[in-house]
């Protein structure tokens, strides 16, 4: 048989390519022998059939046929075993190669994923640095009228140190006072706090600057706290007190006619305050009668009102009003 000859091929090969080439040639030769084995078996069967029918010595033909069948079966088993071993080895080798390639691809994917995560992290950190977190600071009013945010304390200190001289300090104080008086409070404080805290903030601001100008803040606060009339509007404490003090007439019949004249700064205030004031004036005649029992204070108030200058209307008026 040709398969036996192929099995004795010289196996020489210095490197892997030659060995693999020889193995592939052996595999192809084995496959070719398996293909030829079918025709050989068919030809052997025909030969033994003819010899059995033609020859008289059937026993020897049968014995030869038996030996040939056994050898052919063993040879077929050997060929099939060799071919299947080769095929299994080849498939296992390819499976190992595919597994190794999968491992490499998984490694590449993991590296790529790590790069992507790193890029995402870096981009996220960059974007997070761009975002400005909201910071709320106090507002400081400068004499030039500009509003400076209190976040920069160094600038504030430098601004404060620049007011070392007394004249500049007085100028700054007057500017702040005019700013507080002239600027409408709801515009500044409406979006920040509701009405009850606004009253507190305004009082605190008034307190801080009136303490500098030697005013009496404690007395004012005490009087406002004692007064029974509490309105939710701004500066309602002083407005609530004013009818009791300001509307005190020299004669009882002129009380209602004098009341609008005693507020030169009223056009800057809201009409609701005025209406509330008038309502309070109408509803409380008894309090007015009690207020008439203080003629000396009303005289002082009238003198102050007559002697006040037009430019300092609000200061003197509020000073006297706050004293009451």
């Amino acid at each position: 048989m040709s398969a036996a000859a192929t099995m004795h091929m010289p196996r020489e090969g210095s490197n892997y390519d030659e060995i693999s080439m020889q193995q592939s040639m052996l595999f192809s030769n084995n496959l070719q022998d398996l293909k030829n084995l079918r025709t050989q078996l068919y030809s052997a069967a025909e030969y033994f059939e003819l010899s059995y029918t033609n020859d008289g010595d059937t026993q020897s033909v049968v014995e030869t046929l038996k030996d040939y069948a056994i050898k052919a079966l063993v040879n077929t088993v050997d060929h099939l075993g060799s071919v299947t071993y080769k095929v299994n080895e080849f498939v296992d080798e390819k499976v190992d190669q595919v597994t190794e390639t999968e491992l490499r691809v998984a490694c590449i994917e993991q590296r790529l994923r790590m790069c992507q995560e790193y890029m995402d992290h870096e981009g996220r950190s960059q974007q997070s640095l761009v975002i400005n977190t909201p910071k709320f600071h106090k507002r400081y009013i400068l004499p030039s009228g500009e509003i400076k945010m209190g976040g920069n304390l160094g600038k504030l200190k430098s601004v404060e140190s620049s007011f070392g001289e007394e004249a500049e300090w007085n100028q700054f104080r007057d500017a702040v006072r005019t700013t507080i008086r002239e600027t409408p409070p709801p515009l500044l404080r409406k979006p920040v706090l509701p009405s009850p805290p606004q009253r507190k903030t305004q009082r605190s601001a008034t307190f801080s600057f009136s303490s500098i100008s030697n005013m009496a803040p404690k007395k004012e606060q005490d009087k406002r706290a004692v007064s029974p009339h509490r309105f939710p509007l701004l500066r309602s404490g002083s407005v609530a007190i004013r009818p009791t003090s300001v509307s005190r007439p020299t004669t009882p019949s002129k009380s209602r006619t004098i009341t609008p004249k005693r507020y030169p700064s009223e056009p800057r205030r809201s009409a609701s305050v005025r209406a509330a004031f008038e309502k309070e004036a109408q509803k409380e005649p008894e309090q007015q009668q009690q207020q008439q029992q203080q003629p000396s204070k009303s005289k002082r108030l009238l003198k102050a009102l007559l002697s006040r200058r037009k430019t300092k209307k609000d200061e003197t008026l509020y000073t006297y009003l706050d004293e009451y």
């Binding site: 299994n88 498939v91 390819k94 499976v95 595919v98 597994t99 691809v105 590449i108 994917e109 790529l112």
Partner: peptide, 23 residues
């Protein structure tokens, strides 16, 4: 067995091919 091995190998190769294409 050879058919199953070849089928699994083919599946692995297909998956590997897709992953390689994606990469």
């Amino acid at each position: 067995t050879t058919k199953s091995k070849l089928a699994s190998l083919n599946e692995k190769l297909d998956l590997l091919e897709r992953r390689l294409e994606m990469l």
